[in-house]
């Protein structure tokens, strides 16, 4: 069970070809592949350098630049909280859905249904985010408004569901749901692919030992697919953290930091705040906004890093057991 769990990310050592490259085609292909890998690293480094060079002065500018707040931490703090809250809602809603859909497609549905369902889910990824923004802000928000009232009445004791509820549903909650729909296709597609890669022998062995279908999925499919699923979730998370247009169009903002996800307004997310304010910004405000982009860069890195570390640790533990 140890080698397959890492299998989807890096091929097992035994399969790597350590023989010296001989044919020209091999050399060309290896060169192209290496160039592609290096290019993306260079692009990432270039983005970082740009953010750092342009945003550095935004970290310690005159106090007036940070209005409505007074210093960088107070300016960025509420934005970070909102960004993470919205992404968490999106993941909480989307991941169970996506895994269920992926399992349905790969293990439950007959082929005649699975294929069209997979197509439709993939199609969802082609809807532009402005359209999600328009739909989310003008329609879904209205539709979900009664849910805000219900949550506030029945779960009002939690800090996330304070009162008064939003009068038109333009809340972090709605924004999170829109994000969930947006990341659903990517998480589904990747989970579906890794589920389908589970070796048939593992599955049949589990069934032969008397496992029900659910037990087979739990003990044969999930452990095998875990690393791939995490990759899918991380990609979804990246999109949720960085989504700009849809959040800008759905979420009603107000600068005060809050955990209340169904309230009248919440701070913008980092990405949507950049989109909202960059156009009219003076040069020093532009540096500040780029500096917030740098923070988002760092936050995304950190979350990815921690998630990988947690998953890696679990796998190492399993390997030892």
């Amino acid at each position: 069970m140890t080698s397959p769990s890492t299998g989807t990310l890096s091929p097992p050592e035994a399969e790597r070809n350590d023989k010296p490259l001989s044919r020209r085609g091999d050399r060309v292909f290896a060169g192209l592949a290496r160039a592609a890998g290096i290019t993306i690293m260079v692009a990432l480094a270039a983005v970082f350098v740009f953010l750092f060079a342009e945003g550095r002065s935004g970290l310690s500018a005159a106090e007036a630049t940070y209005r409505p707040a007074s210093d960088f931490l107070r300016y960025i703090g509420p934005l970070v909280v909102s960004t993470i809250l919205a992404a968490c809602i999106a993941l909480l809603v989307a991941v169970p859905f996506a895994v269920a859909i992926a399992l349905f497609i790969s293990h439950y549905a007959p082929r005649s249904i699975a294929t069209p369902v997979a197509y439709v889910i993939d199609l969802l990824a082609a809807v532009p985010s402005v359209v999600f923004g328009l739909w989310g802000g003008r329609y879904l928000a209205q539709f979900l408004q009664p849910a805000h009232v219900w949550l506030s009445e029945h779960l009002g004791f939690l800090p996330f569901f304070g009162s008064p509820p939003s009068p038109n549903g333009r809340s972090l909650f709605t924004a999170g749901i829109v994000l969930a729909i947006m990341i659903l296709p990517i998480v589904t597609a990747i989970s579906r692919e890794v589920f389908a890669q589970t070796p048939r022998l593992h599955e049949e062995a589990a069934l032969a030992l008397g496992a029900t279908r659910w037990e087979m999925i739990r003990y044969a499919v999930f452990p095998y697919a875990r690393s791939g699923m995490v990759s899918g979730v991380m990609l979804g998370l990246g999109r949720a953290l960085g989504e700009t247009m849809a959040v800008a169009m759905v979420l009603a903002t107000s600068p005060a930091v809050t955990l209340n996800i169904i309230g009248t307004a919440a701070p913008a997310t980092i990405a949507s705040n950049i989109a909202l304010n960059y156009k009219e910004a003076t040069p020093s405000r532009q540096s500040l906004l780029i500096a917030t982009g740098l923070v988002l860069f760092a936050v995304t890195f950190l979350i990815n890093f921690v998630a990988r570390w947690v998953v890696g640790r679990n796998e190492r533990k399993q390997a030892r057991a």
Partner: peptide, 28 residues
């Protein structure tokens, strides 16, 4: 006067652009 809505006023909802504000008022 400022192009950014004051921070201490948390009673309102900020929506994007002219059409965002008009859309919000129309819907509420």
């Amino acid at each position: 006067s400022d192009g950014v809505w004051p921070e201490d006023l948390t009673n309102g909802q900020g929506l994007e652009g002219t059409s965002g504000v008009i859309g919000g008022v129309t819907d509420t």
